[in-house]
C-alpha cells in the first residue's frame, strides 16, 4: 500500500524520532509513505474564524497535492492532522470559503476538498488492521501499563474530525493491546495539556499537564503515549511526574522488534 505523507515542520526538527520511527514501522507493515512534494507549514493551528482565508491556503495546497496522486493523505502530527481535516471540511461545506480559495489559486477544475485525510493511527486501524499488527509483533510489551493520551486535536471537534468517540475513544487503547501491553483506563486522556501557552505562561502548562499526568499516574500507568509533539513537550517538561512520555510510534517500533 502506498499513501501520500505530510510530515509537517515539527517532525523535521524537534520531533524527528516521531517521523523516522513511523516510516520504518510503516515499511515493516508493508506500507510506503510517499512524501508529497514541496509541502509548506500547515499553520500549526486551525484558524477558527470563518473570514480567515489566506491562513488556510497552505493546508489547501497539501490537500490538492495528495488529491493529484489519488491517494489518501497520511499525517502524524496531531496539529497538522487537525488543520488539514478541518480545512478539507471547510472546502466541502463552506461555499464562500471554497469559492474564494479557488478564485485566488486559479484552480480549474475547482477543488472542493476531495480525497481522504487520515491520521497514522487511523491508517493502522482502518487500512492495516490491529490484527495484522498483533501478528507482526515480535517483541510483545507484556506487563507494561500504558496510558493513551489523545489530547484535544485528534478528537475535537468530533463532527469534523470523525476520528473516534470524542469522550470515550478506543483507537490508541486497541493499538496498545495489539502490542501486547495493558491499556490504562483514565479520563484525563482527552483534556488539554496547556498547548501553546508554553510560550507565554508556563504556569498554566504546569497546572494542566500536571493534572493530566497525575491522573495517569493514579490510574497505574508506567508510560504515557501521544501523537503530538507539543503535548509530548508539555507533559515531559511541565508534567511534574516521574512518568515517561513517548510517541506511540516509539512503542510500535519497539514491539515490531526493529
Amino acid at each position: 500500500m502506498v499513501f501520500s505523507y505530510y510530515p509537517g515542520c515539527t517532525l523535521r526538527t524537534r520531533a524527528k524520532e516521531l517521523d523516522e520511527k513511523a516510516r520504518k514501522c510503516a515499511e515493516a507493515l508493508g506500507i510506503t509513505l510517499e512524501e508529497i512534494p514541496d509541502w509548506q507549514c500547515c499553520g500549526g493551528c486551525y484558524p477558527v474564524a470563518s473570514d480567515e482565508i489566506a491562513t488556510r491556503l497552505s493546508a489547501v495546497r497539501a490537500l490538492m497535492a495528495a488529491k493529484s496522486e489519488e491517494r489518501p493523505l497520511v499525517t502524524l502530527c496531531s496539529a497538522c492532522h487537525n488543520v488539514l481535516k478541518r480545512t478539507r471540511h471547510d472546502l466541502q461545506t463552506d461555499e464562500t470559503f471554497r469559492d474564494r480559495v479557488n478564485r485566488y489559486m486559479g484552480n480549474d477544475p475547482v477543488y472542493a476538498g476531495e480525497g481522504e485525510v487520515i491520521h497514522f493511527l487511523e491508517m493502522l486501524r482502518d487500512k492495516v488492521g490491529f490484527d495484522t499488527i498483533r501478528a507482526a509483533v515480535k517483541n510483545p510489551l507484556t506487563g507494561r501499563r500504558i496510558a493513551a493520551y489523545y489530547g484535544c486535536l485528534l478528537l475535537r471537534p468530533s463532527g469534523v474530525m470523525a476520528f473516534d468517540d470524542p469522550e470515550n475513544p478506543t483507537v490508541i487503547e486497541d493499538f496498545i493491546r495489539a502490542l501486547g501491553a495493558e491499556s490504562v483506563a483514565w479520563s484525563m486522556r482527552n483534556e488539554c495539556c496547556g498547548s501553546y501557552m508554553a510560550l507565554e505562561d508556563k504556569g498554566i502548562v504546569e497546572r494542566k499537564s500536571g493534572s493530566v499526568l497525575a491522573n495517569a499516574k493514579a490510574q497505574g500507568a508506567d508510560t504515557v503515549i501521544t501523537a503530538c509533539p507539543l503535548c509530548l513537550y508539555n507533559l515531559q517538561k511541565f508534567g511534574g511526574q516521574d512518568l515517561p512520555v513517548v510517541y506511540f510510534t516509539e512503542l510500535l517500533y519497539e514491539a515490531l522488534g526493529l
Partner: peptide, 27 residues
C-alpha cells in the same frame, strides 16, 4: 499581543515549532 522581539526569551531548544507558530498566529 505577542511581538517577535519578545520571542527569543520564551524559547528553549526543545520547544516544538508548532507552539511558536500557533502562538504567533493566535496572538
Amino acid at each position: 499581543h505577542l511581538k517577535p522581539d519578545q520571542l527569543p526569551d520564551m524559547l528553549d531548544e526543545d520547544m516544538p515549532q508548532q507552539a511558536l507558530v500557533s502562538a504567533m498566529r493566535k496572538f
